[in-house]
Structure formats: C-alpha cells, structure tokens
Design a binder for these strands. Structure first.
Lengths: 363, 363
DNA sequence: TAGCTTTTTGCAATCGTTTGCAGTCTATCG
DNA sequence: CGATAGACTGCAAACGATTGCAAAAAGCTA
C-alpha cells in the first residue's frame, strides 16, 4: 500500500539495512549515501511504519493521558497542553476518559499498556494503587493533580493548601471576618488541602474557625446550591463565600441570583479554578488559579525525563507542587466594618499576585 | 517482558499457530484445545500484543477523532461519546486537536495514517480536501459537523437550516418581529446554513429580512459583544436576539449586562448549542440544541459500518442530518403585539436579572 | 480392516523494521 | 606493492503475531 523501506532501498540499490541506518542516522553510513537516501526517501514519500518499528524497538510513540472527564475546564486545558507538547516531540496523545471510576480506570490502564504506550500521565482515582505500581515497572508514569497514596509514583500537584490560603487571606485583607467555605469531598486530597489552607489563613488572622461556615460536598453544582443556601440561611450569614470547588460555582450563583443577592455588594464571591466565562460574567469572578497549564507542562517535563532516563529516574524528588495564584476581578469587595459605604471595586494590581513558581517538595 | 503467544503455546505443548487459532477463535481448532488454551492463556496472564498483530493484519485498533478544540462544549460531549462507544468495541480513541488550522490539520492527518489508524472521524477545516480525499483511500473517514466541499466523504451534519429555522420561528411565535441574528463566519457551512434557516422562517412569516439586524463574525466572544452593541445601537433595535454561534454568547451577555438590559423583559435571547451553565444561569437560557450527542453517535455508527464494509460502502448516502430541537427555558418572552417594542433606556426591573448594580462601565 | 473424507495440527513464510556479525572495500603505512 | 586497519555495507535473525498449505489424526463407510 504505502512506500516501505524495501522500496527505498531498492530504488537506491542498497540493502534494506543500509537504508535503515542511513535514514535513522545511526551514523554507520557514509555521509554521501545518507544524503542520497534521505533524498530518495523524500522523493518516494517514504514514511516509516511506526508499528513495524515498534515491534522491534518495543516503543509506540504513543503517550496516554487519563483524566476523569472533559467538562472540567482544568482537564481541558491540560489535555490541550499535553497534546501540543507531545506532538511537537513526535508523540501522539492517547486521551482516555476514566470518569473518576476505579473500574473504568483499571480497564483503561490495561488496554493502554497492551498498546505498549511509551508513557502515561494519569489523574488517579486513588483506588488502583497496586495496579499502577505494577504498571510503573513497565512504563514511565506520572500522576497529575491527585496523589495515589498507595504508590510512590512521581506526582505533580497543585499547591492547594497555598491556593486556599491565598484566597482566604485575600478575603480577610478585604476586611471579611465571616467567610463561608464550600469545598469538595474530604476524602480527596484537594478537598482536604483546600480546607486546611483556609483554616491556616483564619488562624493566622486570629479568626476563630466556625464549622457552620464550612460546607463540604460533592463535585457538582448541586453542592454549591445547597451549600450557599445553608450559609445564607445562617442567623449571621457570611459576608464572603469562597467556593473552593469549581463545579459548585454554578449552584452558588443560582442561589444568589434567586435571592437577589448582589455580588459583590451584598456578598463577596471567590472561586477556585478558572472557567472561560468567569471573565465575561458580570461581575467578573475573582479566582484562585490552580495553574492547570503549568501543571500539565510540568507533568510532561517529568514524564519526558523519566522516559529518557530509562528507569534510573530515582532522583529522590517524588512530588512537585505548582504554585497557585490569585486573579482579582470584580466579585470581591472591600468591607468597612465601621460604616456601610458605597461598594468599592478593588483595583487589580495583579503583578503582586503572580507568586506562581514551580518548586519541588520533599517526600 | 510480558507473556507472549510462544509462552502460551509452549506451556500447552502445541505449536504457536494452534495457539493463535485457538485464542483468536478462527474455528479451525477443536473445542477441547480451544478451551484448554484459553484457560492456560488466562492463567499465564497472556495479553496479545496489538503491535505485532497490527503489523501482520495492518490494523491498529486505533480510531482517531480530530476536533478543533476542547473548550467547545459540543466537542467535549462528542469526544466523550466517541471514546465511550469505541472503548466498548475494543478500540482506543486517539484524540487530536487541530485548532481549526489547516496546517495543523494536515500534519496531524499524516501522523495518524502513519500510525495506521483503523478509522477517522474528523471535523474538517475545509482547507485540506485533497489530502482527505487521498487518505480516504486507505482509511475509512467520516466527517463531522462540517463538510469539506472538496471531497465526497460521508458526512454527519447537524441540521443547521432546520435548527435556525426552529429557533427563529419560536421567536416569531412569541410575537417578535424584529429579530437580531448573530451568526458565524459565512465561509463555513454552519454559518451559511444557520443564516438560511433564519431567513426562511422570516419569509414564511412574511417578515422582511433586514440586513442591519444580521451580524456575522468569528467564533469568539468578542463577536458577540460587537454584534450585540451594533444591534442594540440601532434606531429600532431588535426585541430578540438569536445567537446562532455559541462562542458569541458570552459577549452578548456581557453587553446586556453592561447596559442593564433585562432578559427576557427587555430583550429575548435565544442561543445555539448548549453549555453546562446555560441551565444554571438566571434566567436559564433557551437554546436550539444541535444534538451533539446524536451527531457523535451517528458518526461512530457510520464509521463502524465503513470499517466493516471494507471499501464497498458506496451505498449512495453521503450526508446525514441530525435533527435539532428547541429547548425552552426562561430567556425568551412573549411579546404583546399591540404594544410597540420598547427601545432604548431599558429599566432593569427583572427580579431574576443580574442583580449587581455595580458595573465597571468600560468600553 | 482398508480406503476415504473431514477435522485438527504444525511448518514456515510474512508483515516492516532494527541490529549483531561478518564480509567488502578503500586508504594508509611500512 | 602488499598488508592491515578502518569505514561501509549486506546478510540474516530477530520482534510477536497471523495464515496458506500440507501433513497427521480422527471419523466414517463399506
């Protein structure tokens, strides 16, 4: 069907092996034949067959990315970043969707290694530790966003404690003392870590932690709605809500809208992770950016390094944290505890907010 | 490294060929050996190597989906649907992102056929017709959402003429006579077809087409903003806007919000294609659903059929249309034909409208 | 039991590459 | 001028499966 190495060799009147060496540039061929063959190959439109090559070399030039879904904005940009990076290096990305379901994850993992993928970036459910660990012997693996505690795989994480801390502190600096928190499930790393960052910021400001102000729930809009209702129904409702679970944002907005609560006048709102429409929403929604782009890039970096290292990548560092940063928009306002003044939009001096940096963390 | 067919055959004391036949179920083996071999294979944890198999059979069990991006909600659900369907059939999906850029599309296409994909579903840019046509000789291809006029490839399209017609008629039935249209680029199928559906509905209702009410632009929020401004600045502004280009929705909403225009009281708004947050938005946004899910499913159906047919799929039908449907929510209101449409200086009296009084009145 | 058909099995080639080994050629040096 | 090192090249065996063909085994009839 298509042009094979044999054809090229034949056209150039050399043996297949010479052709192979010349084209792969193994250096064992004379400059002249090498050039001649590259030319002929080009003329004939020869494109090496990765399958045949893979059979011999055991590589596939395929790298898989396994995420939970594609509706999550973070996963979208991660997928785009990973795909772009890999393509530039001649790899193809295999995007798989695991739905945060251990069974599906497990199935997908086995198919992937069957296909002899050269590398894997995975957002683990956390329930397939042993399998992942076993696979890691055959294939370089990097975990993304979530850690699988049952493994010691290299992991690239958002700095959720810091992000939540940053966000909470921002609200405190604006004068808020009663800050509601809507956060994800507490059996996930991110859920726990965001809560802890929130708590730390409060403690640092000598604000007593009030459990009635904290609502932990699932990663769904519904959680935001019930959470918001609960918080707003309190006898002393919060003056700001930090939605540390971006799937919940929609729910919160619906409730504030239903109740005709003006943002940021009546309530300040700060969210976690960006969404394309946050900027376009009125008021534009301030966020803590978890750095999805950086996360993906770092994950690719790590993976590539492992793929090159060929096994001896045990250089100690097992966990990387990508710094979060605050993006101030218009949904949080300064509070003056003394009077009830006109709302003032905080000016965005975003240069100060760029605290993002990539730093390795110790195990 | 892993268990090969040879190992299985050896363990069962049969030849490799027998093992192969027994496991692939070619039917040329006795029931008994077949069972015995499947058992042994299972015990040994044998998993066939798709690369080796592919080399011989010329198949890869890989099917590619090439879309423009992942931020578009339709592409997201399509990707999820395709992945799910294919996985169930033992295929892996290769998701590629072409950015609606002919050069990238072209590059990706060649890498894909290099990888000997078994099939391809592509949202074509429309600029690589010849290449697609050539590839179609080697690989079953189905076009999705957009047609590439330079080819005669099987194509699964949304019924945009009907969808636009449906939406426009809905607005007309609500009593609107001046209906603004914000639509995509007129050099794309969807852009043209949606315009034509709009025009047909108008004609059918004996409403003269007014070109000042039509704004065609790029697939970006900015287009929505400029379009909305243009329409609302008219001396006789429309009483309803049909945003037939869902990337533009954000821009339109920003403008209505900036100008304190209440939806649906002051202006009815109808959009094309669903977004997760449309339902949660206040007011919930009515849409014409293009049936992304159905589109993807049909595309997969067609592709599979072609892949089975092995070349003789010339059964005449070259184009499939998936019906659109109207989803009524709260952003369109009935107009009293007696009273004149109220133009300029709209008061914000909608209880459900964006409540924040403070807007940085930029622009 | 012989002779025939039908099933089941094994041998070996093949897919398109890569690569160890051995052979050929060129050039250099004594 | 002949020997020899060094640079190129080609042969052939892999990689792990599938598959046509022929041989062996089994089943059947008479």
């Amino acid at each position: 069907m298509s042009v094979t190495l044999k054809d090229v060799a034949h056209a150039a009147r050399v043996s297949i092996s010479t052709a192979s060496r010349a084209l792969t540039g193994t250096g064992l061929t004379s400059e002249r034949t090498q050039q001649r063959l590259t030319r002929i190959a080009r003329e004939l439109g020869y494109r090496p067959n990765p399958i045949a090559r893979g059979l011999k070399t055991g590589q596939s030039r395929l790298v898989a990315l396994l995420v939970h879904n594609l509706t999550n904005a973070s996963f979208q940009v991660m997928a785009e970043v990973v795909q772009a990076r890999l393509k530039a290096l001649g790899y193809q990305m295999l995007l798989c969707i695991g739905g945060d379901d251990p069974k599906q994850e497990s199935d997908t993992l086995t198919t992937l290694v069957d296909h002899r993928i050269d590398g894997l970036i995975v957002v683990p459910t956390g329930k397939n530790g042993p399998q992942l660990k076993a696979l890691a012997k055959d294939v370089p693996i990097v975990c993304l966003v979530r850690r699988d505690d049952a493994t010691d795989l290299e992991t690239v994480l958002a700095d959720d404690p810091q992000g939540a801390y940053l966000g909470t502190r921002h609200l405190i600096e604006l004068g808020h003392r009663r800050i509601g928190l809507i956060v994800g499930r507490q059996d996930t790393t991110s859920g726990r870590e965001r809560l802890s960052g929130y708590v730390r910021a409060l403690r640092e400001a000598d604000i007593a932690k009030d459990d009635t102000l904290i609502h932990a729930g699932h990663f769904e809009p519904e959680t935001g709605a019930t959470g918001a209702r609960k918080l707003l129904d309190l006898s002393r409702p919060p003056s700001a809500i930090f939605v540390a679970n971006h799937e919940a944002t929609l729910g919160v907005l619906r409730v504030t809208s239903e109740r005709n609560i003006a943002i940021p006048d009546d309530l300040s709102l700060l969210c976690y992770e960006d969404m394309p429409w946050f900027e376009w929403h009125r008021p534009a929604i301030s966020i803590v950016d978890n750095g999805a782009r950086d996360l993906a890039n770092l994950a690719v970096d790590r993976l590539l390094q492992r793929m090159d290292a060929k096994g001896n990548g045990n250089d100690g560092v097992r966990e990387y944290r990508v710094g979060a940063r605050l993006i101030k928009r218009d949904s949080c306002r300064q509070i003056d505890p003394a009077s009830k003044p006109k709302p003032s939009i905080p000016k965005s001096k975003s240069s100060a907010a760029k605290s993002s940096a990539v730093k390795p963390a110790k195990v």
